[in-house]
Each structure stands twice: as C-alpha cells, then as structure tokens.
Design a protein around this nucleic acid. Structure first.
Length: 531
DNA sequence: GTCATGACTTAGTAACCTCTTG
DNA sequence: CAAGAGGTTACTAAGTCATGAC
C-alpha cells in the first residue's frame, strides 16, 4: 500500500498491479543514495506514471508526496525472512535452482555440451547506469517472448515459447555465437545470451587474442619508432595520431570511441579526450614536460595521473590545445576508426586495445621475473605474484570501491599479528629454558622436549611471516581490483608457466572458475613458455 | 568519410556461499 | 552454532571494433 501525503494526513492508496510492480522497484532501492538524485527520481516518476491507470495518474502527481514506507518495510521483511530460513528450506531453493541450470543452462555446439553464460532473460527493474547517467531511474521493461529472437541450427530442437506466446523470430545464423537476443528498451541496444567463458568457442577466441598480442611483441619496436617519427610530421592528422598512440602505448589508455551526448554518462578514452582533461606543466616536482590527466573513463572510473613525456609530445600537445575551449576535442582530426585503420595496416589484427593486452601481459612477465625467487616461501612467492598482478591493474587503472569492512578487518589482522608476536616471544623463552635444561641433564626426555620447543618456534615464525605478508598485500590492494586484468588482459600461459617453474600449485593463483576458463592454457603450457 | 548498428569483450558491484572463529 | 570475513558467482552496463548503407 502506497502512502500519499496530503495537507495534513497521509492517506493509503491501493495501486493497480502494474503500478504496484514498478512502485515496488523504487521502494526496494530506497536504501541506495541514488534514489535521492533528481535525475533518477524524475526519470522514474515519468516512467512510473506511464504504467498507472487514469485514476492513479490523476491522484499521484508528485513523487515527493509519495510515502513508500510501507512498501519498503514489506520488502525489508521479505529479505529478512529469506535470510532467516532454515538450512533445509534453503536447500530446497538451491535444488530448484540447480534443476533450472540443468535444464536451461546448457546447449549443444558442434556436438559438445557447453555451459551457457547468462541463460536467464534480464528481469524488469529500474535502470541504474554508472556515474552520472542521464537515464538512471528509467523503467527497464519486462521482456516478452514476442521480443525474443532464437538462434539455433535448423535441425535442432527449437525451444517452445511459453503457452499462448510466440517468438519474435527463429533464425539459423551460424556466423554469430549468440543463442538468444532481444532489444532492451532503455538504451535501445541488443542484448544476447551467449556461451560461458569455459566453452571451447570462447577459449579459442581468448587464445587468438593473446596470439595477436604476442605478435605485437616482435613488431612493437618498429611501430614505436614509427610513431615517434610521426610526431614530427607536417600533417596535423599524423601528429595527432602519433601522440594518441604514444598515450595508448605508454599509459594503456582505451581507444575512446565517440559517444552520443545525453545518451550516457560523460566519459572519455584516448581519442575522445578533451582539452579540459589535461593540464600541461613545463616543470612539476623537479620533472619537466609533465602532463596531468584527470578524466572519467569507462564505468566513470576516474583516471588521474601525472606523466613526464618527451619534449616533442609536449610541444605537440601545446599546439593541439591552441585556440581551443576546454570542451573541445584534444585530437580534433582523429577518430578511433582512422586510428585502427592505420594500426591494422601496420600489422594484421592490430587495434588500439591490443596494446593494452600486450602491455599488460608483458608487464606481468617482467614483474614476475623481477620479483620472485625460487628460495622464497609459497606465501612470499604469492605476494610477488600479486604484486606483479597489481602493477598491471594499476597500469590499466582497474579500481574498486574499498570493501566496506576494510578498516575493521585490517585492524583485526593487525591484532592477530600482535598476539602471534607475543606467542613467539613466549615460545622463544621456553626454547631457551629447554636448551638450558637439556644441557644440565642427560635425561633423554629433555631432548625430545627441546626438539618440540624448537618446532614450536619455527611454526610461530612461519605463521607470523605469512600474516605479515598477508597484511602488506591487503593494504596495497585496498582500492585496486586484480580480477579484471587477471581475467581479461594477462595471458594465462604466463601464470601457468610461473607456477610450474616456482613449484606453486596452480590453484593458489587461479580458482576453479578461472582454471576452467583457462583450461586451454593449462593444457598447452610448458615451463619454458615465453609471452 | 560518417553514421548507425550488431556482436562481442571488458568492467565493477551486489548477492550469495563457505569457511573460520569465538 | 551464530556471526562475520572473505572468496566466488551472477549480473548487466559500458566499452571496442567491424561492417554496411548512404
């Protein structure tokens, strides 16, 4: 029941099913800060009113007068009830879900049974883009069978639409990999159901991606000297292209396609950088020719970096910025299209994003070589691995929100370390005493006691080291997401070979899902693999 | 060339699950 | 055995890039 505030009282309103469903979406999100944002509220309210009947529309004219208290409470109690279910009740639900996965979660491709990545149609709800998205709060509508295109082979068992419905289309296109598609109403983009990352199809593509990046390894020297040469070109286009490439290569920036204004959050990549996104410093903190970057990239993640660049790049940037407004394009003669066309002429398959893959993987390989020692303990080796991984994540600007309980769990770990320190001091004292006792008497029992104490000290020491290493790792990782680079940029063969060479079990580096995804690499990689 | 569209990869977050610990 | 931490999975938004129409 929705409450509606009037002059004095708040009167309850029973909503029609359609209006209630959408109102409930809003009520469920009330704990989120974004439901207070004006853009979110007005988008939501506009779409909500579309779902109301005439009577409701007349009655409910102002979102600020709506009291979602009861609907919100209802939702909260549902969540609470779910949390408080018994083990058995939870198991029943889990079994039911598993049955759904078994029935709908797989398909047959070239006679292989393959897991589907996302086999469920996206449910309706309120759209929440990332960053300052102009469409936040809009209603994402329920998808009907009539919206859905099925793509399967001619001779396969075509899935039945739900009773009383029909599919939008059934097609047999083997040039694409998707099984189902539909058009989503908020952005008008096509959504797909595709295979899981552990499938043969995705694995082969992944392998190809890294092979292209490895080809770049042998050509990158030549390509670099060419774009450094191009910095001097008489052609403005060529110079802009050269500077953009310099950024893409050195800083691992994304290509930066044009975006339609007002359709999504204002974010940029290399080619779409604007004058306002960089500041030039002739000197800064003792270094000359420093470029200060400050812009929002993919997912509205901030990229902030101060980078010393070559004199020539610096001079070009000054030139590109001449007579321009802050909102003007830095590279006004350049587009991702022309940039990629140029790159593919230098090497087949070469595009801007290959540089990210290449630089990420080569950095991991170099860092691993530099940081890890055969004589280290496994914990120390893993710290080195994480540090190498982290160097890549920083290069690619992969960030995360610091975990909510970060400070608390850091403090907990620290106090555990302190306790262990005391234990070790105690153990050492006992060892000393045992040594003394053993010296003064020939009782063989004392020798076994001594041995025991010795082992206790060693155990303490090892545990302490492990915890200290863990603390360092955790602190350094506070705002950095390692998983994105691990999953998308680092040639898995580097990690597999490293594990083999340093005698580290692979499951310390890759969990089950990751081992499945990288099965191709696990099989083919020898100790001597070089990226 | 440019523009729209489609197909696919890359991305961060929230929900969920599991293991540890008091 | 409950609670909490930490790891894992699900989810879906937001990029990249090729293609084809104009």
């Amino acid at each position: 029941m929705l409450g509606l505030r009037e002059c004095r009282e708040c009167k309850p309103v029973k909503l029609s099913p359609r209006a209630e469903e959408v109102g409930l979406f809003f009520a469920q999100m009330l704990d989120h800060e974004y439901t207070t944002k004006e853009v979110f509220r007005s988008n939501f309210f506009r779409d909500w009113r579309k779902e109301m009947n005439l009577e409701e529309r007349t009655l409910i004219a102002d979102l600020n007068k709506c009291d979602f208290g009861e609907l919100h409470a209802m939702h909260k109690s549902k969540v609470e009830a779910r949390k408080n279910m018994t083990k058995e009740e939870k198991q029943v639900i889990k079994d039911a879900n598993q049955k759904i996965v078994d029935e709908f979660g797989f398909c047959l491709l070239d006679h292989h049974k393959e897991r589907i990545g996302n086999f469920k149609i996206e449910p309706p709800g309120l759209f929440r883009g990332r960053g300052e998205h102009p469409k936040m709060g809009m209603l994402k509508k329920r998808i009907q069978p009539e919206d859905v295109i099925i793509n399967c082979s001619k001779d396969s068992r075509i899935p039945e639409p739900p009773a009383g419905h029909r599919w939008k289309e059934v097609r047999h296109d083997n040039t694409v990999t998707w099984l189902v598609s539909w058009t989503e109403n908020v952005q008008g983009s096509v959504k797909y159901i595709m295979l899981n990352a552990n499938s043969k199809l995705k694995g082969e593509k992944d392998w190809e991606k890294y092979e292209v990046a490895r080809q770049l390894k042998s050509r990158v020297g030549q390509i670099r000297s060419q774009y450094l040469e191009d910095l001097k070109s008489k052609q403005m286009v060529t110079r802009q292209r050269a500077v953009a490439l310099y950024f893409i290569d050195k800083l691992a920036l994304r290509a930066g396609n044009e975006k339609e204004e007002g359709e999504s959050a204002d974010t940029v990549g290399c080619c779409s950088l604007r004058v306002e996104h960089i500041t030039l410093h002739d000197t800064l903190a003792g270094e000359s020719c420093v470029v200060e970057f400050d812009f929002l990239g993919k997912d509205s993640i901030r990229y902030y970096n101060k980078v010393p660049v070559s004199k020539r790049v610096f001079k070009n940037l000054k030139l590109f910025m001449e007579n321009k407004q802050p909102g003007d394009d830095l590279f006004d003669r350049l587009s991702t299209g022309t940039l990629n066309k140029h790159l593919s002429s230098l090497m087949p398959g070469l595009t801007a994003k290959v540089f990210r893959t290449y630089n990420a993987s080569i950095t991991l390989q170099q860092q691993l070589k530099e940081l890890s020692n055969m004589s280290d303990s496994t914990a120390e080796k893993l710290l080195s691995y994480n540090r190498a991984n982290r160097a890549v994540a920083i290069l690619c600007n992969h960030q995360r929100a610091p975990p909510k309980s970060f400070d608390q769990s850091m403090a907990n770990l620290q106090s555990k370390i302190d306790t262990r320190r005391e234990q070790m001091a105690q153990a050492k004292r006992e060892l000393k005493q045992a040594k003394k006792d053993a010296k003064e008497s020939s009782d063989p029992k004392l020798m076994t006691v001594l041995e025991k104490k010795r082992k206790a000290v060693a155990r303490c020491k090892e545990q302490l080291l492990r915890m200290e290493v863990q603390a360092t790792d955790k602190e350094e990782n506070k705002q950095i997401a390692l998983s994105t680079s691990k999953l998308n940029y680092l040639d898995p063969r580097i990690s597999v070979a490293w594990c083999k060479n340093l005698d580290v079990p692979l499951d310390k580096v890759y969990n089950k899902t990751q081992r499945d995804k990288f099965a191709w690499a696990v099989h083919m990689t020898e100790k001597d693999f070089e990226f």
